[in-house]
């Protein structure tokens, strides 16, 4: 998962993303790759504490060529897309509920319009009902053309996806495609 997200490089083996061998890239090239191609959603949300929702979402846009206004615009779009209420945009991240935090995290993953969204147990810290809402958001993103790689060990969550790869002790056990109703 960390290798897929270009957070880590493999010690052996190779990983090609868009025809580039990721294991050969430098630290900065990896950073650029993550910024442009991959959005992350973590189990523990990893929002900046005591920071507004908007600023959290704008984090990946930092040091880009966009003006502050354009960044805010993009962040707002991503937040609406991820299902955040408009009136919460200026709340501090630690004033949010778990579901809201995860939606902010999803918006942050989306803001650069990446090809891949990598979600590491995104529902692990959420109750069933909020998990459902977050998963609906992912499904919708998927239908709009984002590749979503989701890691979970909950069967119900896995049921939302089109393809399930089961891994046990580091080895692929099953690779099954599934069709939904």
């Amino acid at each position: 998962m960390h290798i897929l997200g270009a957070l880590d490089t493999p010690t052996s083996g190779q990983y090609f993303l868009d025809g580039k061998e990721v294991s050969k890239l430098s630290d900065d090239e990896l950073s650029d790759l993550r910024r442009e191609k991959i959005g992350f959603v973590f189990q523990s949300f990893n929002l900046l504490p005591r920071t507004t929702v908007l600023r959290n979402v704008m984090l990946p846009l930092l040091y880009s060529d966009l003006t502050q206004k354009q960044r805010e615009e993009k962040a707002k779009q991503a937040l609406l897309y991820a299902g955040m209420d408009k009136d919460k945009f200026n709340n501090l991240s630690n004033q949010l509920s778990g579901g809201q935090m995860q939606r902010v995290a999803v918006a942050r993953a989306l803001v650069n319009d990446p090809a891949i969204i990598l979600a590491d147990e995104p529902t692990g810290n959420l109750d069933t009902k909020t998990s459902q809402v977050v998963m609906e958001t992912f499904k919708e993103l998927n239908s709009k053309g984002h590749t979503i790689i989701l890691i979970t060990h909950e069967k119900e969550i896995a049921e939302f996806t089109d393809r399930i790869i089961s891994i046990r002790d580091g080895l692929i056990e099953k690779d099954e495609k599934q069709t939904h109703k």
């Binding site: 630290d27 900065d28 950073s31 993550r34 992350f40 984090l59 990946p60």
Partner: peptide
């Protein structure tokens, strides 16, 4: 986190 979302080291 900053690194994960693609901020360069510098």
């Amino acid at each position: 986190l900053r690194k994960a979302v693609g901020t360069r080291k510098i």
